[in-house]
Design a binder for these strands. Structure first.
Lengths: 330, 330
DNA sequence: CTGTTAGCGCGTTCAA
DNA sequence: TTGAACGCGCTAACAG
């Protein structure tokens, strides 16, 4: 059971000083003859620098933390996929942490990132998170809020949630539906909150009563939704605030054995792969996920490199309404 | 811009030695009065131990690497979700890396894990990966192959791919379909390879000619599939080897403007959320994802802790056929 | 261009 | 029980 080789081992074999090895490895010019010997020794020993030691010495871990509620939905899995690829291109590795919208877990994760000395963090925060929480947990560490807004003081990139929801609602109104309900779980999650606000704005602009159907979890949501749909003043159209909400709306339809013709019109958030293929093809708001991630990482890395302007950036990207048939089009 | 507090700072404030602080933090008994002072100092300074330094000293990074082809599909996003949660419960953080089935990227990731001195790794490997590759890249580091099999010498947990595919095929045969095609991208990916083998076995057992429809990417797959379906001896049923394959089969149906009645029967792999809700409800092979992850992590951590028996474990878990209507049932 | 020295922050000796 | 000294592996600073 041999010890892993260290710079010293390589240096000894190549008959040079340890710092020469270090220099060679980092691309600092060394005399060609020496370079060859070092290279040979590195290969011979299968040497690989210890990132922890390097990190400890230079103060940069080349690691970013990604804190999300979960990864198992379209939006987040696409996000994390893109984050990982982009981060890698910049020589960073990703520590992935999920909090399930539980504040305590999120705080624990922030602590984890602090202990690992992550260079920065991308975070979709749990409801109730304040700028103080973040600042206290990660002092002097660049953080960009993703798909959530913490405060003016913290960089963020997110969907223009209100506008998107208003647009969707207005589209439904344009089809003549007057009784539109907005359905979501966890209405206190930032993006859902904004979306339901946008929905309510559109309704009020027409002097219509907003009707928010929400619940803390999906089982309860289906129950409540079922009651409303079977009730006397059942909504003629639905706005689902996430792909999973859409899913449970469909499940409710099934549970109620509602035929296609009896089903309310529907617009959902997030354009999952099967959206065009279900019956009827689903009209959705599509988020520009890759763009959002790219912006977020640009901001993050410019902060890490110190090349950023001091100004905080709060980027709001527009959603796109993808019209298919569930909204009543065609 | 204050420096982050270190053990020394805490020690000074609490008027004790640095090692006492270290002991206190790790739960080694210290005199109550001293403990109180240290605790106070820790809180006052907001001290958080540096994981890199600790790791460097004790030789354990409390980090595991997870190398997957991608995360944006049902199976992998569920997997990574569960891995993260389970790893966290065991005090480990997860470094996430994706290789898109490109060998070069995978090798780079292995190198990354070595440099970060990950304590272990879960890996779904790219086609062509050998035990030697892994061993050379990660000597003395526990590795468990997930959803892929490298060799008898490396622990692995995966679906009983062949059996599952055979079961699905036989189910289709039982419905009277004689001409069944198997469709997938990247037929050289381990699990796809096994599945198509299981499919072929079932066909041959009935003296039927296997018909593998495959392509390196989805665009080409749709093209090839379209040709076959419009051809003279179009398959009466299809076996899709992944959820994304299923998706593209449906897209092909759309492109061909195939009515429901003209569409071949279909069984897919992976039970995505909308599977029961599409038309017709999709019959699938469901993988026991959480179970698989749990087994994989149990093996991994028992190796890391050294509590494992020396015997290599190769776990093959059965898939479950979820009958809905796309296969011809009902 | 190169080698030597020192120290990043911690945990672990070893005496006291 | 506690504290001082040392070293994990690396790179920055300095002298040659």
């Amino acid at each position: 059971m041999k010890r892993r080789p260290t710079v010293t081992d390589v240096a000894a074999l190549a008959d040079v000083g340890a710092s020469t090895v270090s220099r060679f490895l980092r691309g600092v010019p060394v005399k060609p003859a020496v370079a060859a010997r070092v290279k040979h020794a590195v290969d011979a020993l299968g040497y690989e620098p210890d990132e922890r030691a390097r990190s400890l010495r230079v103060g940069r871990s080349k690691t970013i933390g990604v804190i999300l509620p979960k990864v198992s939905n379209v939006f987040f899995s696409q996000s994390i996929q893109t984050i990982e690829e982009e981060a890698r291109q910049r020589g960073c590795t990703v520590i992935l942490l999920t909090h399930q919208d539980v504040m305590a877990q999120q705080m624990e994760h922030l602590s984890t990132l602090r202990r690992y000395r992550a260079d920065g963090a991308i975070i979709t925060c749990a409801p109730g998170t304040t700028a103080k929480d973040i600042r206290a947990a990660l002092p002097h560490v660049p953080v960009v809020a993703f798909d959530s807004f913490i405060s003016e003081e913290i960089d963020s990139v997110l969907l223009r949630n209100r506008d998107a929801a208003r647009m969707a609602t207005e589209h439904l109104l344009g089809h003549g539906y007057g009784s539109i309900a907005c359905v979501t779980v966890k209405p206190d999650v930032y993006s859902f909150c904004e979306r339901s606000a946008g929905y309510a704005e559109a309704m009020k602009a027409r002097n219509l009563q907003p009707n928010l159907i929400s619940a803390p979890d999906y089982d309860q949501l289906r129950y409540v939704l079922g009651m409303k749909i079977r009730g006397k003043d059942a909504p003629g159209a639905l706005l689902a605030l996430s792909d999973v909400a859409t899913l449970h709306i469909f499940k409710t339809f099934e549970e109620l054995a509602l035929k296609s013709s009896q089903r309310p019109a529907l617009v959902g958030f997030d354009d999952f792969a099967f959206a065009p293929l279900i019956d009827p093809p689903l009209t959705v708001i599509r988020q520009p996920v890759e763009m959002m991630v790219r912006y977020a990482l640009n901001i993050l890395f410019s902060r890490i490199d110190g090349t950023a302007s001091k100004e905080i950036q709060n980027l709001f990207l527009p959603g796109e309404l993808i019209c298919r048939r569930s909204c009543g089009c065609l």
